[in-house]
Design a protein around this nucleic acid. Structure first.
Length: 863
RNA sequence: GCCCGGGUGGCGAAAUUGGUAGACGCAACGGACUUAAAAUCCGUCGGGGGCAACCCCUUGCCGGUUCAAGUCCGGCCCCGGGCACCA
């Protein structure tokens, strides 16, 4: 073997061999246990960024590990290629989104191949191509037939200057990003899918997802937001009765006002007679639709000047309009109990509305002089319900409402139906056709193809003016008709791509039986930012596909790994106009003080100071991205892969560090020279198993103990997917081999060498597969590394003659003892008591208790 | 504002899940090799005290449980992710 490790040479030739042998092509085989490993597919934004590299390396390590365990692994890749950035880039570069997208895919595909990921490229899919999206169009019409799709008015961010709908991302401080105009909420008709019909199953299904992180399951539970309470009816004179949902019917007697959303029918009605109310409603409309904005704005309201009849007391109570009541949750109206709800308390205090206490703590005094009492308690001032606990009263008051026909028990979900309409061009056309009266009917021919030869003007979707697209024939009447010009939310494509990977090339159906072989996905890997929306939509879609009869399983993803983001230091200067301009870390030199702490940074090009802006997620806006390509060119794919695995555990954020990756390269060179040094011995001894253990040389025995202790840790770490410590273990093993003197190990030297090097290649194989392929070839076996099986622990190698005991006095470390493994508990205790330092610390004290943790620790408690 | 995470040396981190805090690596410093540099190799490396054996302090902050807390419980502070049209 050559003395120098030349990664690019090895990597290119190993990759060519993988391609030639089609080793990663996945074929259905009922005789083998399948393993479907999937990473969230990329949006083709231009070039790979470090987040991609991390995501796909994690997935590749898992895929290769599972393959070595002997499973039939399917590992596909594709492109989530509809979306907003393509439209923006098209405008900027004076091109069409399709061409820009295709170029990016070609570029990024090349980068993924260069990194040596074990993809089955024959399954590659691209969501913006008609052969993919025609099936979601077809599927949407199936859902329509089943009554799961409907159209209703819904709010969007409206830019009144550009006359266009804006994404939340395009609203900055309440203004349109291009026009700078104050954004308004506007209602337009949009398509919805009834995800709320599946709320209960989406919630209960989480209980069985043992392979998902608890944090993600909790987030989804909270997002679905099931609450049990009551709907209560308040009679409004001369108007429709007002129904409200409450989780606290026990506080009913404490209601002192009602509040409705600004677009509630009662508020709309009241605004017709009052300019003040109309103005308030207009103000409420002047904000983005984002919930974070709604929740953080000042809580304000206005009295509607009308009253409603309290169902129990018959009192007339005022009805207000408030900016914090959401039309989309519950009934768009709430009953307010200022004494027992903090938000109502603040609102009532601000507008001098009555506060009436009805719940008292079971013991102690009620104090609502500063804040509401929101705990459960005992009822007072509640007529016949006085003395009941909150829990009792929730039941009895609900029963009373039901008996008097004034309300009933109700389960409410925070989850809202999924609005899938987008007024954008670069998306999948929604397959509906409107007759002359505007009545929709589903398309019957698929695909409804998106015209790709378009010019983007920066305002609005080009197909909304394109008669060649819009004008069509009604599928039933044959009369002139018009196509829907809205497109699907891009979450639509990403909700079912994992199933389509199972059926490449299928042109007669959305899915076939192959989907049932591969699904569910055994391991899904992706960013934590997708914890709720994408993962919830995909779970929902899976159940829809099941109910349409396309697949048999209930959940799409058995095990989920949510990776952390990739971050880097940011550097900037503030210009005279107050704007920050950011400089890439590679263009900045950091000075260190004598402790090695950063002390000031300068721009290399002009030698002038730049300010440090702290660690942030790699992004274009902060200009702190590191181009993976430059790292691959410099160090090779294996080093980049090794570093991304070593720098942090997968679920934590990973801070990029140029120096640290050089350390990864250094390690691989050390592994290389280690094999170089022993290549002749390895070729001669091949895979000689360790059999003769009796009378084994102590040096050989010691190295075997290290080897198998490390194997044991590595097996554990691969299973729990903590790959940074796998790399650390490989480094420790390398250190041990470097120090070992095999010549002194007598007859066992070669066999121990073969065993330890074999372990090292196997441990690193999923992480640095190119290098390991090469090293594996030194063993001269016929089998490919991928098919050569996995490693196991030889328990007999783990047997120790001596054990180190830690001796504590009152919990503080005072001594360490080397004790024969056969020593009994009293013997160990006696040895501990006799230790010089222990004796010193026990002087003048009485021993009260001695705690012995076998094989590990002794704690002497004395005073 | 609400929901979910995270905080350990100069830095990235580890701690077999309540039992030796800092494995492994980066940076830094000292040395070897070299005409020199790179590369490589050897050594030191949380803070403080001590000639030394050793001792004291230290896992964001405050309090608690325990023989024993980075790990469990309660309260705070700071940072990040998500909040339904970025993907």
């Amino acid at each position: 073997m050559p003395q120098e490790y030349n990664p690019s040479e090895i990597e290119v030739s190993v990759q060519a061999n993988w391609q030639k042998t089609e080793i990663f092509k996945a074929v259905e085989d009922s005789a083998k246990e399948k393993f479907y490993c999937l990473e969230m597919f990329p949006y083709p934004s231009g070039k790979l960024h470090m987040g991609h590299v991390r995501n796909y390396t994690i997935g590749d390590v898992i895929s290769r590990y599972q393959r070595m365990l002997g499973k039939n692994v399917m590992h596909p890749i594709g492109w989530d290629s509809f979306g907003l950035p393509a439209e923006n880039a098209a405008i900027q570069n004076n091109t069409a989104p399709a061409a820009w997208t295709d170029d990016n895919i070609a570029e990024m595909r090349g980068q993924l191949k260069r990194l040596g990921f074990s993809y089955d490229w024959s399954r590659e899919l691209t969501t913006c191509k008609p052969d993919y999206y025609k099936w979601e169009q077809w599927f949407f019409t199936k859902l329509y037939e089943r009554g799961l799709v409907y159209k209703k008015e819904s709010e969007v961010n409206w830019d009144p200057v550009d006359q266009t709908v804006l994404a939340n991302e395009q609203v900055i401080d309440g203004r349109g990003w291009r026009s700078g105009a104050l954004v308004e909420k506007k209602k337009i008709p949009q398509w919805f899918i009834k995800i709320t019909d599946y709320a209960e199953e989406l919630l209960s299904g989480l209980d069985d997802l043992d392979g998902w992180p608890d944090s993600v399951k909790t987030m989804q539970r909270n997002w679905i937001g099931k609450s049990v309470g009551a709907e209560v009816e308040f009679e409004v004179e001369g108007g429709d009765n007002l129904r409200v949902f409450t989780t606290r019917p026990d506080t009913l007697m404490g209601v002192t006002y009602l509040a409705v959303a600004s677009d509630h029918p009662l508020a709309v009605q009241a605004s017709e007679a009052s300019g003040e109310i109309a103005a308030f409603r207009k103000e409420c409309a002047q904000s983005s639709t984002a919930e974070a904005d709604m929740e953080t704005m000042e809580k304000r309201g206005i009295s509607l000047g009308i009253t409603a009849k309290h169902p129990m007391t018959g009192d007339q109570i005022p009805v207000w309009c408030a900016n914090f009541v959401l039309m989309t949750y519950g009934t768009g109206a709430v009953m307010a109990v200022p004494a027992h709800d903090q938000r109502d308390y603040e609102f009532a205090s601000k507008y001098a509305i009555d506060i009436k206490a009805v719940i008292y703590p079971a013991d102690g005094e009620l104090d609502i002089s500063q804040a509401a009492f929101t705990d459960l308690g005992v009822l007072k001032n509640s007529a016949e319900f006085d003395g009941q606990t909150s829990d009792q009263a929730k039941v009895s008051i609900t029963a009373w409402l039901e008996k008097n026909n004034l309300g009933e028990q109700q389960i409410n979900y925070r989850l809202r139906d999924w609005g899938v309409s987008r007024q954008r061009y670069w998306g999948c056309p929604i397959p509906f056709i409107y007759d002359a009266d505007g009545n929709p009917t589903p398309a019957t021919e698929f695909p409804v193809e998106l015209p790709t030869d378009v010019v983007m003007d920066g305002v609005g979707s080009p197909i909304k003016k394109m008669s060649s697209f819009i004008d069509t024939v009604h599928p039933i009447t044959g009369e002139a008709a018009q196509r829907e010009t809205d497109t699907f939310d891009t979450f639509f494509e990403s909700s079912w791509y994992y199933a389509r990977y199972c059926c490449p090339g299928l042109d007669t159906d959305m899915l076939d039986q192959r989907a049932n072989y591969w699904l569910p996905v055994d391991q899904y890997v992706g960013g934590i930012e997708h914890a709720v929306m994408h993962l919830l939509y995909a779970r929902f879609f899976h159940k829809l596909m099941r109910d349409v009869g396309l697949i048999e399983s209930d959940e799409p993803f058995t095990r989920l790994l949510t990776q952390g983001m990739v971050t880097a230091e940011t550097y900037f200067r503030i210009a005279d106009d107050g704007k920050r301009s950011f400089y890439n870390p590679k263009d900045v030199e950091v000075a260190l003080d004598d402790k090695g702490k950063p002390a000031g940074a300068t721009l290399i090009s002009d030698g002038q100071a730049v300010e440090s802006g702290g660690i942030e997620k790699m992004s274009k806006s902060k200009n702190n991205g590191v181009d993976p390509q430059s790292m691959i060119d410099k160090y090779g794919a294996d080093t980049v892969r090794l570093f991304t695995m070593f720098a942090a555990p997968p679920e934590q954020s990973l801070e990029w560090n140029d120096d640290a990756i050089a350390g990864g390269s250094r390690f691989l060179r050390r592994v290389w020279s280690l094999f170089d040094k022993h290549s002749e011995a390895l070729a001669a001894v091949k895979l000689k198993p360790m059999i003769e253990l009796d009378g084994i040389n102590p040096a050989a025995k010691a190295l075997r103990l290290i080897t198998h202790t490390i194997i044991q840790r590595v097996l554990f770490d691969f299973e729990r997917q903590q790959f940074n410590t796998v790399v650390a273990a490989a480094m420790e093993l390398t250190n041990a081999v470097e120090k070992a003197n095999f010549a002194q190990m007598g007859d066992h030297g070669d066999a121990v060498l073969s065993e330890v090097c074999h372990a090292l290649v196997k441990i690193l194989a999923p992480i640095t597969p190119h290098l390991c392929e090469y090293l594996w070839s030194l063993y001269g076996t016929e089998q490919s590394l991928e098919d050569s099986g996995w490693i196991s622990v030889d328990e007999s190698a783990l047997v120790k003659d001596e054990i180190t005991y830690v001796v504590q006095v009152n919990g503080k470390l005072r001594a360490k003892l080397e004790v024969a493994a056969s020593a009994t508990k009293p013997e160990v205790e006696a040895l501990a008591m006799a230790d010089e330092n222990v004796v010193r610390f026990l002087e003048g004290l009485t021993v009260r208790k001695v705690i012995v943790v076998p094989q590990r620790l002794i704690n002497i408690v004395a005073n």
